[in-house]
């Protein structure tokens, strides 16, 4: 097998997103943000979101990490900007299923666009956490947002 199998994990689109991350840096207009740490390597990701009327109008992430975590965060922003929160959560769930090797609906896979490519991380079980980090952060952020809304 050797290094050639790395091509499954580090597809061109993955390397492109990690080398040129989209929506990386500060989001001054953010309404919410959440920082999450990958305990195995200490990488930290800060996901910032602008949420208006139940729609994710803008997203950005800050922090550094491995190729997989950076690419996955970048892909997440491109997929989820403009999505209603409810649908975003459905996509997050499907992404989570995909990277843990579960079958997902073809329509959902289409909607995940580039991020679906990172589903091949399921073949590399030690890297699933890297792929999941940004998505978990956003999921937790939306959880908190939802809980806060109920309290209001």
């Amino acid at each position: 097998m050797g290094l050639s199998s790395l091509n499954h994990l580090y597809r061109e689109v993955v390397l492109d997103h990690s080398q040129h991350p989209r929506h990386h840096g500060a989001l001054p207009a953010a309404t919410d943000h959440l920082e999450l740490r990958n305990p195995t390597c200490g990488d930290v990701i800060d996901v910032q979101a602008q949420i208006k009327d139940g729609v994710i109008t803008d997203l950005a992430f800050d922090g550094s990490g491995c190729t997989i975590s950076q690419a996955s965060a970048s892909m997440m922003t491109t997929v989820l900007i403009g999505q209603p929160v409810d649908h975003a959560r459905e996509l997050i769930l499907n992404f989570s299923n995909l990277i843990t090797g579960k079958e997902i609906d073809a329509k959902m896979e289409d909607e995940l666009e580039d991020a679906a490519v990172i589903g091949s991380v399921a073949e590399f079980p030690t890297r699933i956490k890297c792929a999941a980090l940004a998505w978990h952060a956003l999921d937790e952020l939306l959880d908190k947002k939802g809980a806060a809304a109920k309290d209001d």
Binding site: L6, C41, G65, T126
Partner: peptide, 25 residues
């Protein structure tokens, strides 16, 4: 390169190394 990427590459070559903070943050 992030050490996780390096360690995954080495693993594909059959080489087991540790990557992370080694419990020494």
């Amino acid at each position: 390169l992030h050490p996780h990427d390096v360690a995954t590459g080495l693993d594909m070559e059959g080489i087991a190394v540790r990557a992370g903070h080694h419990c020494a943050q």
